[in-house]
Each structure stands twice: as C-alpha cells, then as structure tokens.
Simulated scan of single mutants.
Amino acid sequence: MVEGWFGGEGDAFRLLGTRCSACAAVFFPREDVHCRNPRCAGGELVEVPLSRRGRVWSYTDGRYRPPSPYVTDPELPWEPYALIAVELAAERLVVLGQGVPGLGVADLAVGMEVEVVPGVLHEDAETVWTTWQWRPTTGVRS
C-alpha cells in the first residue's frame, strides 16, 4: 500500500497519522506539508500512532472487481469483501478500510467495536502488498 501509513507488528500494529503542534488536529492519511485546518496558522506536523480500536460508523460490501490500479488475479473468481468506515476511539476520525477475510456485512452493526490489524491486499511470486483491515473485537453477529 502506501509507505508510512502504518507500521508495527502484532499488538504494536498501528495506522500512522500526523498531529499539528499548533492546533492539535490529527490527519489520516498523514499530512507532511502543512496543517489542513483552515483556522490554523500552521505548526510542526508530528507523526502519531492512531488508536487501534474504534466503532463501526458505516459499512457496505464490495461486490465488483475494482478497475486498475487495484490489483487482482482475473483468473480467480471475485470474492466480495466488507468495506468499513470506523470512527477511531481517541481521535474521533473516520478511517475507511476492508474487513478481515471472511467478514461480511451480515456480521457488522453500526457501533460495533473493531480493531485495526495487518492484512494482505494482494500477493504474487515476488511481492506481498500489506494493508490494514478491521476485525471485530468480540464474536461476530449471528
């Protein structure tokens, strides 16, 4: 995916954002040039690890194969996936991402607690493209 947007392994895996030292606004994706807050004169932008947990704000399912540059194997059948908007616990920032494999929209509910985990977006013989995914913190709905 995009270098610098996440890092760490296991329980240390985090999305990485930036915080403005002048107004304390937090940004994801990260901002490395200037504060996006129109009311702020600007300050130093400092990298910050974002909350691991949040609550489902909205969700839908991806039922079609996205166009390029999204990479998929056209020889394999398309598998729908859950696309989840999560409001991070501390930052109150909404971040979009895929659900973990096997998680469908029938398993989700607005307000459900989820956590960010590393996942595989695509892999081939030479490369594994890693991304973030959302996983429920408790058993999925039945």
Rank of each mutant, 00 (worst) to 15 (best):
residue 1 M to K: 04
residue 2 V to E: 08
residue 2 V to N: 05
residue 7 G to A: 07
residue 7 G to R: 06
residue 9 E to K: 13
residue 10 G to Y: 12
residue 11 D to K: 14
residue 11 D to Y: 02
residue 12 A to L: 12
residue 13 F to V: 06
residue 14 R to L: 06
residue 14 R to V: 04
residue 14 R to M: 04
residue 15 L to G: 09
residue 15 L to M: 15
residue 17 G to V: 07
residue 17 G to H: 09
residue 18 T to C: 13
residue 18 T to E: 12
residue 20 C to N: 04
residue 20 C to W: 08
residue 23 C to P: 11
residue 23 C to G: 07
residue 24 A to V: 08
residue 26 V to Q: 08
residue 27 F to R: 05
residue 29 P to W: 13
residue 30 R to F: 14
residue 30 R to M: 08
residue 30 R to K: 15
residue 31 E to L: 08
residue 33 V to N: 06
residue 34 H to P: 00
residue 35 C to H: 13
residue 36 R to F: 08
residue 37 N to E: 14
residue 38 P to D: 10
residue 38 P to M: 09
residue 40 C to E: 14
residue 40 C to L: 13
residue 40 C to D: 14
residue 41 A to Y: 00
residue 41 A to G: 14
residue 42 G to A: 10
residue 42 G to V: 09
residue 42 G to F: 09
residue 43 G to Q: 12
residue 44 E to H: 14
residue 45 L to K: 05
residue 45 L to F: 09
residue 45 L to H: 05
residue 45 L to D: 08
residue 47 E to W: 11
residue 49 P to K: 13
residue 49 P to W: 03
residue 50 L to Q: 10
residue 50 L to C: 11
residue 50 L to A: 10
residue 50 L to S: 10
residue 51 S to W: 13
residue 53 R to L: 12
residue 55 R to I: 09
residue 55 R to N: 13
residue 56 V to F: 07
residue 56 V to S: 03
residue 56 V to P: 02
residue 56 V to D: 04
residue 57 W to E: 14
residue 61 D to A: 04
residue 64 Y to W: 10
residue 65 R to M: 04
residue 65 R to H: 02
residue 67 P to L: 02
residue 68 S to Q: 03
residue 69 P to Q: 04
residue 70 Y to D: 01
residue 70 Y to N: 03
residue 70 Y to W: 09
residue 72 T to D: 02
residue 72 T to L: 01
residue 74 P to D: 05
residue 75 E to D: 13
residue 75 E to I: 02
residue 76 L to K: 03
residue 76 L to T: 03
residue 77 P to E: 08
residue 79 E to A: 02
residue 79 E to I: 01
residue 79 E to F: 01
residue 79 E to K: 04
residue 80 P to L: 01
residue 80 P to V: 05
residue 82 A to T: 04
residue 83 L to Q: 03
residue 84 I to A: 03
residue 84 I to T: 06
residue 85 A to E: 06
residue 88 L to N: 12
residue 89 A to S: 14
residue 91 E to Y: 15
residue 93 L to C: 07
residue 94 V to T: 15
residue 96 L to Y: 05
residue 97 G to K: 06
residue 97 G to W: 08
residue 97 G to T: 06
residue 98 Q to N: 11
residue 100 V to E: 14
residue 100 V to C: 01
residue 101 P to V: 06
residue 103 L to Y: 02
residue 104 G to H: 08
residue 104 G to F: 02
residue 105 V to G: 04
residue 107 D to K: 03
residue 109 A to C: 00
residue 110 V to C: 11
residue 110 V to A: 10
residue 111 G to K: 11
residue 113 E to I: 10
residue 113 E to M: 11
residue 113 E to N: 11
residue 113 E to V: 15
residue 114 V to L: 08
residue 118 P to Q: 12
residue 121 L to E: 05
residue 122 H to W: 09
residue 122 H to E: 00
residue 125 A to V: 01
residue 125 A to C: 00
residue 126 E to L: 05
residue 127 T to H: 07
residue 128 V to E: 07
residue 130 T to K: 14
residue 131 T to Y: 02
residue 131 T to M: 11
residue 133 Q to T: 09
residue 133 Q to R: 15
residue 134 W to A: 12
residue 135 R to A: 15
residue 136 P to T: 10
residue 137 T to W: 08
residue 138 T to D: 10
residue 139 G to C: 00
residue 141 R to I: 11
